[in-house]
């Protein structure tokens, strides 16, 4: 069922990680990404891995949920692993027909696989612990300086929060329409590509119709409440950085510094 998609889902909770300011979390993710891609040695990779595991433990997100979300990416992970395993130059440790495996290849494969998994886990940690609304709020704040160059920051974040807000609604709606058409004997699971694509028509048409209807209704509702863009608009929940936020940012900067030091010294 579509409902079981976990990618980008929010798991409500009340942990340190959940309570952090969304801006802190967004910035931390950026700093973490830099650290992750800087890390090239065994020790630096271990450092970025252990710090993320620590953050996941703090968030009380079950490791099973993390792994479940990684399932769709299994192909990419394996593909990268194979490429790295067979196509890295270096001292050959095993040879079979056209393939050779090098010691460097094995090392790089492990690091690359870890890198992808950590990259994905890190974004999961962000979306699992931050509600979509908070996320766009944080993004709007962070992008504020761009307003100076006439970049429509508020409009963009409003569009993003509306889109995020409607993803679950539309998924639910798709589920409902699919069930309704299945009840009339529609068959989505058999046949070739063309037949399957055609079978989706009875789902897509009502879905588009309803999406337009919802957009219309939402626009009316917003106008009824005097929405007139971001100018002079205040918020019910203003974002405020706490001590924990500064400490978190400091922590990730230190991790980055540590990684750079390790890489510099060839670890």
């Amino acid at each position: 069922m579509l409902k079981d998609i976990t990618l980008g889902q929010y798991f409500p909770g009340d942990t340190v990680v959940h309570r952090l300011d969304p801006r802190t979390k967004l910035l931390s993710v950026i700093v973490y990404f830099i650290a992750l891609f800087t890390a090239s040695g065994v020790f630096s990779t271990l450092l970025v891995m252990s710090t993320l595991l620590f953050a996941v433990a703090l968030s009380r997100i079950r490791p099973a949920s993390m792994l479940k979300g990684m399932k769709p990416l299994l192909f990419i992970i394996i593909f990268t692993a194979i490429l790295n395993l067979f196509y890295t130059e270096g001292t050959v440790v095993a040879r079979w027909w056209l393939f050779r495996i090098t010691a460097e290849g094995i090392r790089r494969t492990i690091i690359m696989m870890l890198r992808i998994m950590l990259l994905v886990s890190c974004t999961f940690l962000l979306t699992y612990t931050t509600s979509p609304l908070q996320l766009t709020d944080g993004l709007e704040h962070l992008l504020r300086p761009l307003k100076k160059v006439r970049f429509p920051v508020h409009e963009l974040s409003m569009m993003m929060s509306i889109a995020l807000r409607f993803i679950p609604t539309l998924i639910e709606e798709t589920d409902k329409i699919m069930s309704a058409q299945k009840a009339r004997g529609a068959d989505f699971d058999t046949g070739g590509l063309v037949k399957r694509a055609k079978a989706l028509l009875p789902v897509l048409v009502p879905l588009f119709v309803s999406a337009f209807r919802r957009a219309d209704e939402l626009a009316t509702a917003m106008e009824c409440r005097c929405y007139h863009g971001g100018e002079g608009r205040t918020r019910m929940k203003t974002l405020k950085m706490q001590t924990a936020d500064y400490l978190t940012l400091l922590f990730w900067c230190l991790v980055l510094a540590g990684v750079i030091l390790l890489v510099r010294s060839g670890l």
Partner: peptide
């Protein structure tokens, strides 16, 4: 069975296509 047990969903007008 789906043909023998006809199910009309809530607000079925949204399934017309």
């Amino acid at each position: 069975i789906r043909f023998r047990i006809g199910l009309v969903f809530q607000y079925p007008e949204y399934q017309l296509f």
